[in-house]
Design a protein around this nucleic acid. Structure first.
Length: 136
RNA sequence: AACGACGGUCGUUCUGUCGCUGCCCGAAUGGGGAGAGGAAAGUCCGGACAAUAUAGAGCACCAUACUUCUUAACAGGAAGGGACUAUUUUUAGUCACAGCCAGUGCCGCAGAAAAUAACCGCUCCAUGUAUGGAGUAAGGGUGAAAAUGUGAGGUAAGAGCUCACAACGUAAGUAGUGAUACUAUACGUGGGUAAACCUUAUGGAUUGAAAGACCAAAUAUACCGGGGUUUGAGGGCUGCUCGUCCAACCCGGAGGGUAGGUCGAUAGAGCUUUAGGGUGACUUAAAGCCUAGAUAAAUGACAGAAGAUUACAGAAUCCGGCUUAUAGAUCGUCGUUUUUU
RNA sequence: GGCUCUGUAGUUCAAUGGAUAGAACAAAAGUUUCCUAAACUUUAGAUUCGGGUUCGAUUCCCGGCGGAGCUA
């Protein structure tokens, strides 16, 4: 029981190791051009073999400066996407991957030119994650 | 009282669940505490800091331009002087506010003429009686600007030609730290334009934290310059030896590769309060406080409460200013409308 | 983050501080044609915005807004 609760708490967290920071891996991710799209989020993905048992899925978020000139709005959208991923990753992603030895790198790209609510973003992100697990 | 304009100040708060970035405590699960702004923005000025360069002087280039003060410094700020505008007799606002009495350039159209002025006119003289010569700048539909204005004397006609008053400039004297002001002083007066070139005075080396320093990992010493011990494998000059050149080795330059970490980097020209100095900007002393520090980059999501879908807007080396944006609340000034006295 | 340049008709470019900002293509209308194209005739169109200097700004100066480039 205790172990299960610990896992539950951990799965709602979002630490530094879950961020995709390396420039090289982002470039390789974009070079592959695998993507799912559900308005307003486009998701690039790349499957990799786990090299250590502690390797985790890593994500990056991009909101283009071309569509949103003001830094406040860009930050707000990035925070909403990250929050939506944090709340839903366990339910839609981790449960399906828990026994496989693969991990996935993701890049969420916000394509709309308008600022949307959290509810709409969350809905789109869930749809994208469902597509992802279905193809795997 | 309501509405509008302008200016100053503040710039949502609290609770719960999940979560993010540093710090402290702990062996650990964990616990404690901190976490965007008045403009963080624009990158417009001025510095700190770092690297590189630098005998000294001049020219060129760029910036600034009333005075005194303030400051680490400034094109900022304070106080004062001057000009202009509005209102009015005292206030408010604005001002790139040195110099066309150094030189050069420019001033379309109109107008006789736009800068050593002369078309008409006025006056005198001559004769061929409607022309020529001389003088003159009072008057003339222009224009943004027409040779400083008015009056008197003077003259053939006129004219700063002379005089009086006024306007402007330079010098001198007096007052003031100074800009400047005043003067029964002296001399002078041929437009405007320096946000035209320019002159004068003062200041300025260049590049910006993706600067720069260190560590780890990784690859190949390709190429250039200098030096040369042992060994002498090999190659060129030769049939051979000697000699010499290349090469192996070392040093410097340059290139390739890797793209990760630490420092820089957050205690500072710091903030608050009190007292003193100063008209003020500001400054001095004492006491107290520690107040983001990330590196693809941290403040969010949901629910509830306080009238309530909430402005402009997100730190990226750090400070001092300036400029621009701003819902709502509140304070002050002005204007309009309504009500009461 | 830092530095530099730039803004003119729908588009591409002109214009020394001086009539009403010019040219080409495009657009619209007309002529011609059985219809279209070509040709010809005409029309409407712009100085990024706000201040300042000047008698007068597209031009000179200041500030805002937008666009582009360089720098790893």
């Amino acid at each position: 029981m205790l172990q299960e609760e610990d896992n539950l708490i951990q799965n709602y967290s979002f630490t530094k190791s879950e961020r995709l920071c390396s420039r090289k891996s982002i470039e390789s991710l974009l070079r592959e051009q695998n993507s799912h799209y559900h308005h307003p989020i486009k998701c690039y993905y790349l499957w990799e073999q786990k090299q250590k048992s502690s390797d985790q899925n890593q994500i990056a978020i991009a909101v283009p400066k071309k569509n949103f000139k003001k830094a406040v709005i860009r930050n707000r959208i990035k925070r909403r996407i990250r929050e939506a991923y944090r709340l839903n990753k366990r339910q839609f992603l981790l449960d399906n991957l828990s026994k496989s030895d693969k991990k996935v790198n993701l890049l969420f790209y916000y394509t709309s030119k308008k600022e949307h609510d959290f509810a709409l973003i969350e809905e789109a992100l869930i749809a994208v994650l469902k597509d992802l697990t279905a193809t795997q």
